[in-house]
Each structure stands twice: as structure tokens, then as C-alpha cells.
Design a protein around this nucleic acid. Structure first.
Lengths: 223, 223
DNA sequence: GGTGTTCGCATACATCGTTCGCGAACAACG
DNA sequence: CGTTGTTCGCGAACGATGTATGCGAACACC
């Protein structure tokens, strides 16, 4: 784990201007890695597996990418290209909700994305376009620029948390957790936890809380 | 990645009631792992390193823990024992802010915690106490029980995000990101991003946005 | 056709989580 | 006190990981 003196991958030239030309491109490698992650999860994205999917050797990837984290950065930014960014309408809350709704769809399409967005947020070219759009939407808002940056971060992170939660609810690990909570409830202490299980099942369908939470949280950052 | 049919670690007996008694305890192992993570980061918590710190062999750990993830669960829950949980005051917003403030301190003490809380939230015995306290604070609130569970999750996750962000700001990776953003700004497109750099430095010290964001977000979930 | 440079990649290294198998240690029982 | 049943500690091994090294082959340019 040395001090990583190299700049971000998007500041490094993709192709050397002399010598033997490369047989593949960053975009091609990124696409293969994203498809692999979509299909088998982030852990399946190992240098060897990605290389195999490309039909090359593992060490070859290091001609395109300095490290595996670079590859993850490329993958993350490539998903930011899936946004549709229309001109601001004048209602910044509505516009940001549109962005969040798209983020949710994109993250559902790429189940590995929420985890990456939360643990190592990254801005590449496409992410910069997205940030530009959000700043444009907030152009007339009186908040300080630093607050707007925080708002952008919260918009992404909160959406990722919500998508991750809804995915975890159907995962097999949820039953194990619920089983333990039931055990805690039956032990006698924790009456409030026990009440969670004796409460009658709610009639109304669970409503989507993302818009309400997001708008309020953004209001909290922007002051 | 088999179907993990075993129950959560806290439902498995720590000591067998027959045969040779164990030389160590889960608590002892957890303490060593936490100390190691505090000092050298989560990646340093490998089975071999933890075992070495205990003065045993790596394979021995599997008598106490079925998998490394189990060890992480033990570590997470052990930090939940650091909360001080006084009786509810009647003002649930103030009480939850007290909880969040403690969470922030605990997470600053254990820099690896935010990442774990966000990516694999876990409830053990101490976490159950914390949940009980939060439910107690919200006892008179009319929201549905499921919403209160979401509120608990958001309280933890949002606090973790904030701590993680303030830690990332001083990390070496921040300069690399800033350098790229500066590059994007100078490229000409992205005028709003460019404005971030031409804006005069703000005089007022950056204020803590956690309380405002958290209270509003909680209001959003609880309806 | 050299020449300079990069590319592809086989190989190797250190480390990881985890499994296997077995001798030793202990509790309970006679 | 010996026997028995069971668990414990752990050396060794397996498969996988990310990455470094070194070199022959491929290309652009003069």
C-alpha cells in the first residue's frame, strides 16, 4: 500500500503515442467488467476473470489499468453515462428527484453499484457531467458551493443506501437477522423489540420513502 | 458461496458443554481484532494476523468463528457496547441526536466502523440494546413500527456516511480527486464546476450539518 | 530496414480465507 | 484411576487473489 503518487486514471493517457498500439480500449474492458459484475456480482470481477472474458492474459490488463481499484473507478463512471439530463425546469427539488429516480433505476440495473458508490465515491468524465447538471439545477439556490457539493454527495449516497436496503430485504441473510431479533424478543428484555412482532400486520402497502427523506435531507444540507 | 444454512453467530453456543474447554473466548478474540483494526485498518484484520496477535495458529480461530464475516459481526456489535443510553427525555428528536452524537464519537474512535456499518449492518446483543433504546425513545411516536426500524437504519447509516466523509477529506485520495475536478473545470465545458474554484473562499467556518440533515431525514421516514 | 517504444503475457510471489486430519487435552463415568 | 467420548489447537495444504518482472513480438516512424 504505497503512497499512490499517480494521478487519477482519467488524467493518464489511454494510448501511448509511440510504439505498438494496444489491442483493446478502456471502454471495452470496462464494458466486459460491468457485464460480469451485473451477472455474478462484484467479487467475480477479478483481474483474471475479466481477462479471461476478454480472451487475454491477466497481466495484460495492467497495460490499461494501474490497479483493480482503477477498474472499479472506470466501471462506476461508466454507469453515470446512463443518466438523461434535461435542462433545469426551475424547480430544483423536482429536478433533483428526477436525478435520484434515475440513480435508483441505474443502481437496480447494476446491483453492485450501491456498494461501490457508498464506499469509494468517484468522479470521472460522466460523473462530472452529472455534477455539472446538479450544480446547474441548484444555480439559483443561495447556499454556499461547498454545501452544494455535499448535497450532491448525499443525493448519491442516500439513494444507494435505499437501493441497497431493498436488495438486502430479499437476500437470504435477512431471515437470519430476523430470526435473531425474534430470539431477542422472546428472551423477555427488550419489550419494544418484542412489540415489533406482536403488532398487527399493516394493511396499507409500504410506501416509497425516498422522495420525502431525500428532499428533507437536501434541505438540511443546503440550510 | 454456499447457502449459509447456519444461524447468526449469537445464536450458536460459544462453548461446547462437553470435551476439552476452549483456551480463549469470543470476547478476547474480538477485542484483539478491534484493536488491530483501530491501529492498522480493516484490511489488517486477516485470520492469520489476528491469530498471530493472539499467539495461536490461524486455523484455531475457526473453533470460535465460522468465517471472517462472523468476526466482523462480533467486532461491530462490540462497539455498540460503548453507547451510554439514558432514559428517554420525552423529546425524541433531542434523544436521537444524542444517540447520533455518540455514534459519531464511536466511529471516530474506530475508523473502520463506518464502512462496516454501511456495507453490512448487523445487530448483535449490544446492537439490540441500542435498537431497544431507539424504539423506547420513539414509543409515543405514531409512526408504524416498520418506519421506526427504517429510522434506526438511517440514523446509523447517515452518521456513518458523515464520519466517512470527514475522514476521506484528509485522506491522500482527496487531492487526486480535487486535481481531476480542477482539470475538468479548466477544460471549459462544465462552467458550474469551474465556478466552484473561482468562488471566493468562505469566511465562516464550516458548520456541522449532521443534526439538521439527520432530524429532517428522520422526519421524512417517520412521515 | 533499422530503431525505439510499447504491448501481450507466462511466470512467480506473497497473501488471503478456508478445509482436513490428527494428536493432545479435558469431563464424565465406572 | 483408567476408559471413553468429545472438543481443541494447529501444521499443512488448496485454491484463489492482486500485483511485479522480464522478455519476445509487434508496430510507427525515420
Amino acid at each position: 500500500m504505497a503512497g499512490q503518487r499517480e494521478p487519477v486514471i482519467w488524467l493518464r493517457p489511454e494510448q501511448a503515442q509511440v510504439g505498438r498500439p494496444a489491442e483493446r480500449s478502456r471502454a471495452e474492458i470496462t464494458a466486459v467488467a460491468v457485464e460480469l459484475a451485473d451477472r455474478e456480482g462484484l467479487d467475480a470481477v477479478s483481474m483474471r476473470r475479466v481477462a479471461a472474458a476478454l480472451g487475454t492474459g491477466a497481466a495484460s490488463l495492467y497495460r490499461y489499468v494501474a490497479t483493480r481499484d482503477d477498474l472499479l473507478d472506470l466501471m462506476t463512471d461508466s454507469t453515470a453515462a446512463e443518466y438523461d439530463l434535461p435542462a433545469p425546469s426551475g424547480d430544483w427539488q423536482a429536478d433533483l428527484l428526477r436525478v435520484a429516480e434515475q440513480a435508483r433505476h441505474i443502481m437496480r440495473r447494476h446491483p453492485w453499484l450501491p456498494g461501490v458508490v457508498i464506499t469509494r465515491p468517484t468522479l470521472g468524465p460522466n460523473g462530472a457531467d452529472l455534477l455539472e447538471h446538479v450544480l446547474d439545477v441548484l444555480a439559483d439556490h443561495p447556499a454556499q458551493p461547498a454545501r452544494k457539493l455535499e448535497a450532491f454527495a448525499i443525493l448519491n449516497a442516500l439513494t444507494a443506501l435505499f437501493v441497497q436496503n431493498e436488495a438486502a430485504a430479499d437476500a437470504p441473510g435477512a431471515q437470519r437477522q430476523a430470526a435473531y431479533l425474534r430470539h431477542v424478543a422472546q428472551a423477555g428484555h427488550h419489550p419494544r423489540v418484542a412489540a415489533l412482532f406482536t403488532t398487527p400486520p399493516e394493511a396499507d402497502p409500504p410506501t416509497d420513502r425516498l422522495p420525502a427523506v431525500l428532499i428533507r435531507a437536501l434541505a438540511g444540507v443546503l440550510g
